[in-house]
């Protein structure tokens, strides 16, 4: 007698499907009273398009084929929404209004997420079609189609901070053999990119900083760091940061800007101005940083006490 395995439908992602909203410029989740905002939907069913699609340009040979281009395509996601009860149409309308409120992509990105096991996976989307199907008994249904604007990712706001280090002793770095003195970095300034394409990075350099410079280098298979960074952003001489200033190099939104703050007696920072500083970027180098697939190390010039570098990135995956 054959040994049949019995599979029980114990895991389901439809129960975990959820919408929220992030700010386009910062990636921060919009919250009310500390709680992320969600629209009300009683039930979501039959999601499709959650997966990936790849396009390969192939030259066919007699024996093997040659791949000349490879691209991960984004697929539209569609699902059926159900609203229950006597006021189901009203719920449907509220849901539509909620989407409409956050349609402006310059300000907001709506996110769809679902959970498998303990991990929640996100994708930023733009609703392109909400189609009312109608009422059947107690239930009003609508079909929603979403166009992805990012790949899927598991955690937003992966970030690390590199700080000024006054340690005078011997500090082992990724770069063999070692490096002396201040300006060495904590060991977490490493980005692992498992995605097929380069990841955009958002880098904040917080003053005081006399030489505003940040670079990204390849970490080789043996753990050593390549001597020459593959991308670097440097500001022209004369461009310095005071203690209450920060430069943001945002490859997500293609902006390089300077934030200036005032700090009150209680240490609270208030943003005073935001200025585009693209003209001050040393144009012999790069203006934005992207992390290539594999492991990369970020380095910034943090010679002055109080300076730091915060790197935000998203771990995209197929």
């Amino acid at each position: 007698m054959k040994d049949h395995k019995i599979y029980t439908a114990v895991d389901s992602i439809t129960d975990t499907l959820q919408f929220d909203v992030v700010y386009t410029s910062t990636g921060d989740t919009i919250k009310v009273n500390g709680v992320p905002i969600h629209p009300d939907v009683d039930m979501i069913e039959m999601p499709s398009g959650i997966g990936f699609k790849q396009t390969l340009d192939i030259v066919e040979g007699d024996t093997i084929d040659y791949v000349v281009n490879q691209k991960i395509n984004k697929k539209n996601i569609s699902m059926v929404l159900h609203f229950f009860g006597n006021s189901a149409y009203q719920k449907y309308q509220s849901f539509g209004s909620w989407l409409g409120k956050y349609l402006d992509l310059n300000t907001y990105h709506i996110r769809l997420s679902w959970q498998v096991g303990s991990l929640r996976r996100y994708i930023e989307v733009s609703p392109i079609n909400l189609d009312l199907v109608g009422r059947e008994g107690n239930c009003v249904s609508a079909k929603l189609t979403l166009q992805p604007i990012t790949p899927q990712y598991e955690e937003y706001d992966n970030f690390f901070t590199i700080i000024h280090d006054t340690n005078e002793g011997k500090i082992y770095n990724y770069e063999y053999p070692y490096q002396y003195g201040g300006g060495a970095y904590s060991s977490n300034n490493v980005i692992t990119n498992d995605y097929l394409k380069p990841l955009p990075l958002k880098v904040k350099l917080l003053g005081p900083m006399a030489h505003v410079y940040v670079s990204i280098s390849k970490i080789k298979e043996d753990g050593s760091v390549e001597n020459t960074p593959y991308l670097k952003v440097e500001f022209a001489s004369g461009f310095e940061l005071t203690a209450n200033q920060e430069v943001v190099i945002d490859a997500f939104n293609n902006k390089v800007y300077l934030n200036t703050y005032t700090v009150d007696a209680g240490g609270n920072k208030t943003l005073v101005s935001t200025t585009d500083v693209f003209n001050s970027v040393n144009k012999t180098h790069d203006s934005f940083l992207f992390a290539k697939p594999g492991n990369s190390r970020i380095a910034a010039e943090l010679d002055l006490a109080g300076s730091s570098c915060i790197v935000n990135y998203v771990r995209y995956m197929v």
């Binding site: 490859a251 293609n254 144009k283 790069d286 203006s287 934005f288 940083l289």
Partner: peptide, 8 residues
């Protein structure tokens, strides 16, 4: 026309 990294 700039590349995404900023190169002209």
């Amino acid at each position: 026309l700039h590349e995404l990294t900023g190169a002209l």
